[in-house]
């Protein structure tokens, strides 16, 4: 059965500027909001690329590297914590689909 873990799935994705160590994040998350007033912290489970994680203390962390630009978090976050944009072609990460 070809059931894949999320990490294996993300391993199949081609990203731009993958080799660059310094990239400009195209999504900026105010995790202070996630960790203070947000009642659901939903990005930690609805994001299809698991860019939002929750640590053992229940704190939300965000990393942009695996982002596949789907847009889910921009709608799912109703707390105003997610400032969403597309990555810069030169200095952002972002995705290039092989199939799409």
């Amino acid at each position: 059965m070809n059931l894949l873990k999320l990490t294996e799935r993300l391993g199949l994705v081609s990203y731009r500027n993958q080799a660059k160590s310094e990239i400009k994040p195209h999504i900026v998350v105010d995790t202070d909001i996630c960790n203070s007033t947000c009642p659901h912290k939903c990005t930690t489970y609805v994001c299809p690329a698991n860019c939002y994680t929750m640590d053992e203390n229940g704190k939300v962390h965000f990393q942009v590297e695996d982002c596949i630009e789907c847009g889910t978090c921009m709608y799912a976050c109703d707390q105003g914590a997610v400032d969403w944009n597309y990555p810069d072609p030169e200095i952002g990460r972002g995705v290039t689909w092989n199939y799409g």
């Binding site: 070809n2 894949l4 199949l12 994705v13 690329a49 889910t72």
Partner: peptide, 16 residues
């Protein structure tokens, strides 16, 4: 499962 057995996953994607 019967319909998709075998084969190799070559891409995973998502979009709103």
């Amino acid at each position: 499962r019967d319909t998709i057995r075998g084969g190799e996953v070559v891409e995973y994607s998502a979009h709103v």
